[in-house]
Amino acid sequence: MHSKMMALAAAVLSVQAGVVNALDVGVILDAYHKSETTALGGRSEGFGSSHSELSLSQDVADFATAQVSLVGEWNEDESDLVVEEAYLQTTALPGGLNVMGGRFLADIGYLNATHNHADNFSERPLLYRAFLGGHYFDDGVGVSWLVPTARYWRLSAGAFSGDELGEADSASNIGTWTLSTELGDDIGETASWQMGFSYLRNNTQSSLHHHEDDHDEEHDHEHVGHAHGAAYQGKNLYLADLVWKWAPQGNNRQQQIKIAAEYAYVDDIYTAELGHYDGWYLSGIYQFDENWATGIRYGRVNLAEEHEHEGEHEWQQGRLTETTVMLSWQPTHSQRLRLEYRHQDAAHMEGADNAITLNYQIGFGAHAAHSF
């Protein structure tokens, strides 16, 4: 798998080397200390780095952009280096069309297509960690269309190998495929909104192996390091998101309020004797100064766990809730120091705990603009 990823990155870099345009290089360094390991992955106990990134991007003539992103993660138990992105993306197609191919983040949900360091919290919401392994990237092709309307409206679709979503090979050539749409608009001069709907079809059979062979590793929630693959899967994943932002006269440099909510529904579940999984979160961020922000997020997932009872394995419905409170200081545009308290409460699930996390990020060089 690692040789495949490196070959893909080398192919993209060889395309970059064949043009004369300048190479943009960006680095994000991420360091943290977390008091306890909490359920459903994310950062582990102790000192570590969760998403340090080296990104290389370059225009290919006048028709495309090449992008390669390598992500390194380490903690007191293990280290990991992965090619998260290695793709070509068109820039000159007519009619608002855009095509990309290679390895990239799937365009689903509000957060999945963004890099982790752009998040308001140090860990993704529970529903992302449960159903997408934190964030889902894969090898494939994607197309998007910016519809020519007065209101922002974007449609996208993707087809992927499915190798990065699960631990087993797909039963078909297309392991997963996605559909999504986003709509948004301004409300006067001070507010704006965006809503989205996404669908992921999962043709892999990985959960059959998760529950039968890797129960201790996956479902005790003692994950360490970077999580590749989703622990809870079904054939269909539906996502809906809504974001609202407010800033004085639309200028968010000094002050901003951001409310975000997302809901996920998974059905046709592999192996588990349960009709569906689901999860949601609601978050609020208040930037009260150019350098300071605070926020709170509450989320919940309803899952199923396999337990042994009188010598036999049986499925039991479980619930995990998480409340996170955050205070963030940005002395410069490229630096952030973040303090968080996380509280988890579980029913019929293992690994829930409370934790305090101190997280520092610093960036160097070029980096793409963050999305809405």
Rank of each mutant, 00 (worst) to 15 (best):
W246R: 14
A247N: 02
P248K: 13
P248T: 11
Q249G: 11
Q249A: 14
N252A: 04
Q255V: 13
Q255R: 14
I259W: 03
I259T: 09
A260F: 09
V266D: 00
D267G: 09
I269F: 06
I269S: 10
Y270S: 09
T271D: 15
A272V: 15
E273K: 13
L274V: 15
G275H: 12
G279F: 01
W280Q: 08
Y281L: 09
Y281A: 00
N291V: 13
W292I: 10
W292N: 10
W292C: 10
A293W: 06
T294M: 09
I296Q: 01
I296L: 07
R297W: 05
R297M: 11
G299W: 07
R300S: 04
R300P: 10
N302D: 03
E305H: 02
H307Q: 08
E308V: 14
H309P: 06
E310M: 02
G311L: 01
G311I: 08
E314S: 10
Q316G: 15
Q316N: 14
Q317S: 09
G318L: 04
G318R: 01
R319W: 09
R319V: 06
L320K: 05
E322T: 02
E322R: 12
T324A: 06
V325I: 11
M326V: 03
L327K: 01
S328D: 00
S328A: 04
P331I: 06
P331F: 00
S334F: 02
R338N: 02
R338H: 07
Y341R: 12
Y341P: 00
H343S: 10
D345V: 12
A347F: 15
A347K: 15
H348P: 15
E350R: 12
T357F: 00
